[in-house]
Design a protein around this nucleic acid. Structure first.
Length: 859
DNA sequence: ATCTATGGCAAGCCGA
DNA sequence: TCGGCTTGCCAT
């Protein structure tokens, strides 16, 4: 299927959203802003908040409509920190001698903290800097000097500096240059849910979370940027470090209506002017002027959006500007090791954000899985990709170049605008929950978000943040053995499905099972194995959990989970306006991302609150619940035919029986949902491998070989064709009829393959390089061999790149598709591939491979 | 600097 | 030739 034509109208913004602010126009008149492009600064953007997590105080950085930067202090938690005047111990003075000399040093304090891990109170020293925002940046900071002491580690004494946590505030906005509190309205349904869903203890915690989700997310004026660079050699990606060649084009597309392409005039090109209704083109005689114009625009926006701007566009702009003699102070771009920023705004690199695995999987349901390119992601999400091109940008005419460049910037911006600004809302909401700046949120993985969220909760309560080694020492390690070699503990149960076709299958689902377990069994690093009066939830496991105090992580995970399930999913469903629905959808997906990752982090060594007993108990309790439910289902007269971790496929189920099963689970505080009913399910007999068709003809394929990303298109297309036939199966008799049709289809493709009536592109097997070429030391897989061949032709490939290989008859047996010819294809390999991948479907229908081959002989 | 987990399948590599 | 190991991709 070809991509549908792109209609520029589809990307039009709704103009009324962005009314021009009079205030700004006045400012322009007064000359305080130079060269405002058009549109408006939305009213009152609080750009940033620096949290002092320990004290719950925050420094607010504002970007007001006239472009001034303001700072305000305010108290976030409402309760003042308690300080204990204490004498400064000798040892600390010794230890911090260098810090005391530091010009940025302000003063010490000794504070009492609760050490949850050991259940005792301790004294802690805190080091203050004069300017909290300067910490971590610039020359030798206090943080550098403290080194390992930064993380604490004088006995009983921990040191903290201010964290430079800058997040968009939900509490304040600017009006006429003044800070005005934002009223957060909480719908009555939410208040009611507080009472009915939560225990009084947890209701208090939930109450503190609700404003984070309830406070409106403002629209933030922003601009997308994309540049194109001249390259003498096609296929060679320009290196931003050396920035050898000139920037020939830059596209800037803003939410305020800015749509502009800046082109560099080149003697080799003939000017060819065409009128564009949707964007304007500016021609520049010098690259210097072009770049300066880009800078002039960038500094006028509080947020800059790019796709891979961290590693390409911004460093390239910076280095090019430097090379052209622009003094450092006139360049609003700050380039760090692997991120780049713009002053005074915040830079969001969508490449990084979409690369966050939890976002990919949970917020977008994996629709762009494995696609790392702007084209792939935009096409998967928006249905609009990059402009197709048949030559490198260096050989394009002005006209083609402008079109191409404009499209890139446009879809980059649109990725943050579509679906009621979902991406922007997600970023801002995550930023609020995790207490991290938007710039950091978009550049870190989910474990960092959860870490910061939990650290904040510690600080708010006056708790000490424990050391990872101390947690292990106090709480122990895992006791079960994993099935997979090299893993730390046993995971989930997967039932062995019988091969065959089964009609009328009910699929039950434990709703967010792992988080529910963490919530229900009070699992937290400080509550497991914490004392003699604890109980063992699973007698076979030596881990005990104490019940006399609520576990912090259990509470947080539980509150988030219950808020999502009982409040925000419902609000999203019952929303009365699209805007409301968009908002609550963003809220519930942000929560989903955090909740779903909340179990995994406790089993990850890299997580600072790593606690194997917590992870192990979670998995063990899940097995226990699954096993119990299977038994109960049998008892009720149902037949469990398959199940994986938190799902259960049942034969002979009806509403009444399912209800009874749900009631049993309810006693454990675990929700069972009826996920779906399949007209029939085909099992190949392998785990994690089935095909189901629901009554409405919807097809679900899981784990089927031919569907995987690395399957050659030939096999994928054949499978799709077969699915279309299979969909219509209603009875056992239908299976027999379909069987012959399917066998015929397979034969037809095999004949085509033998007779080479097939194009090369149908045979490409796409494999990702997960490491750089040199790191494959144990063996040399085929895609690595193919990559090496590419290297000889000067095509660079490395970690993250996808190599498309074709199986050939030569001794190596493989070639990259770019270097392969149809006549050297090893069709035996492909026949084999079709056999094994189709086997998974055919076996379910009772067709054996022998039968398939037998029919072949008869034909 | 960078990182949620374990379970399962299939293909291919490579030494015994 | 066989079997253990590595690799990639997927399910949950």
């Amino acid at each position: 299927m070809s991509r549908r034509d792109f209609e520029p109208d589809e990307l039009e913004l709704e103009e009324e959203e962005f009314e021009v602010e009079e205030q700004e126009e006045e400012a322009v008149e007064r000359g305080r802003i130079k060269g405002v492009v058009s549109g408006a600064v939305p009213p009152s953007i609080v750009l940033a908040v620096a949290y002092d997590g320990d004290e719950g105080r925050a420094l607010v950085k504002l970007y007001d409509p006239v472009g001034n930067t303001l700072y305000y202090w305010y108290d976030n938690t409402g309760h003042k920190p308690y300080l204990i005047a204490a004498e400064m111990p000798e040892k600390i003075i010794e230890r911090h001698a260098e810090v005391l000399q530091h010009p940025g040093f302000s003063h010490f304090e000794v504070v009492e903290r609760y050490d949850a891990l050991h259940n005792r109170r301790v004294l802690v020293t805190r080091v203050y800097a004069k300017d909290p925002l300067s910490i971590g940046g610039g020359k030798k900071s206090i943080r550098d000097i403290l080194g390992e002491t930064w993380e604490s580690r004088i006995k009983y004494h921990h040191c903290y500096l201010f964290d430079r946590n800058i997040i968009p505030s939900m509490w304040y906005r600017v009006e006429n240059g003044k800070l005005v509190p934002v009223e957060v309205s909480v719908p009555p349904e939410v208040i009611a849910a507080l009472k009915s869903v939560f225990s009084p203890e947890r209701a208090g915690v939930a109450e503190e979370f609700i404003p984070l989700f309830q406070a409106p997310v403002p629209h933030i004026r922003r601009v997308a940027i994309d540049i194109e660079v001249y390259t003498p050699q096609e296929n060679k990606v320009p290196d931003p470090k050396s920035a050898e060649h000139e920037i020939i084009s830059a596209a800037l597309v803003g939410t305020d209506g800015l749509r502009r392409v800046l082109l560099l005039r080149r003697p080799s090109l003939e000017a060819e002017l065409k009128y564009r209704p949707d964007y304007e083109v500016l021609l520049f005689d010098s690259e210097h002027d072009l770049i300066m114009e880009v800078f002039k625009t960038l500094v006028q926006y509080p947020v800059i959006v790019s796709f891979n701007g961290d590693n390409f566009d911004l460093p390239y702009l910076y280095n090019r500007a430097r090379a052209l003699g622009v003094p450092e102070e006139e360049i609003p771009v700050v380039v760090k090791r692997d991120c780049a920023g713009v002053i005074p705004g915040a830079h969001i690199d969508l490449f990084k954000f979409f690369a966050v695995k939890a976002i990919e999987a949970y917020a977008f349901g994996g629709i762009y899985r494995g696609e790392r390119s702007l084209d792939g992601i935009a096409y998967a999400i928006l249905g609009i990709g990059k402009l197709a091109r048949d030559k490198g940008v260096s050989r394009m005419s002005y006209w083609e170049l402008a079109e191409y460049n404009y499209r890139d910037a446009l879809i980059t911006l649109y990725l943050t605008l579509y679906n009621g600004e979902l991406v922007m809302k997600l970023v801002m909401l995550l930023s609020r929950v995790a207490k991290m700046p938007v710039e950091d949120i978009t550049r870190s993985q989910v474990s960092a978000w959860i870490r910061n969220m939990l650290y904040y909760e510690h600080r708010k309560r006056g708790w000490l943040i424990p050391n990872k080694e101390d947690i292990i020492k106090e709480r122990g390690t895992a006791h079960t053995k994993a099935i997979i070699k090299g893993k730390k503990y046993a995971g989930a149960i997967v039932l062995d499905p019988p091969p065959g076709v089964f009609f009328n299958v009910h699929v039950l689902d434990f709703a967010s099972l792992y988080p529910s377990i963490i919530s229900r069994w009070n699992l937290s690093y400080e509550t497991v194995n914490c004392g003699p009066d604890a109980e063992r939830p699973i007698p076979e496991l030596p881990h005990a959990v104490c019940r006399d105090r609520p576990g912090l992580t259990s509470t947080i995970v539980g509150v988030l989970r219950d808020l999502r399930v009982h409040v925000y999913k419902r609000l999203a469903k019952s929303a009365s306006t699209p805007a409301e629905r968009h908002f609550y959808d963003a809220v519930q997906s942000a929560m989903k991302v955090l909740i779903n990752a909340s179990y995994g982090v406790f089993g990850a060594e890299t997580f600072p609150l790593y606690c194997p007993p917590v992870a192990e108990l979670t998995a063990a309790l899940a097995r226990y619940i699954m096993a119990g439910t299977v038994l109960k289902a049998i008892e009720l007269g149902m037949i469990p035919i398959y199940g994986d971790t938190d799902s259960l496929f049942l034969l002979n189920a009806d509403e009444e029986k399912i209800k009874q099963l749900m009631k049993c689970a309810e006693e454990l505080n675990i929700d069972i949902e009826l996920d779906r009913v399949y007209k029939f399910v085909m099992f190949s007999g392998r785990k994690k491998n089935y095909l189901g068709v629901s009554a409405d003809g919807g097809v679900v394929m899981k784990g089927i070989l031919a569907k995987k990303r690395n399957a050659p298109p030939l096999a994928k297309e054949l499978t799709e064709e077969i699915i279309r036939t299979i969909k219509d199966i209603n009875t056992t008799d239908d299976i027999l009829k379909v069987k012959d049709a399917v066998i015929a289809m397979v034969k037809e493709v095999e004949t085509r393959l033998r007779e080479k009536k097939i194009t090369l592109d149908k045979l490409g097997i796409r494999v990702t390089l997960n490491k750089d070429l040199g790191e494959y030391t144990k063996n040399k897989p085929q895609h690595v061999k193919a990559a090496e061949q590419l290297l000889k032709y000067g095509i660079k490939v490395g970690r993250g790149d996808v190599v498309v290989i074709v199986r050939t008859r030569d001794p190596v047996g493989v070639r990259p598709i770019q270097l392969a010819r149809i006549d050297e294809v090893d069709e035996r390999k492909y026949l084999e591939y079709i056999s094994t991948s189709l086997e998974q479907i055919l076996e379910a229908m009772g067709v054996t491979l022998e039968e398939l081959r037998g029919t072949a002989r008869l034909l």
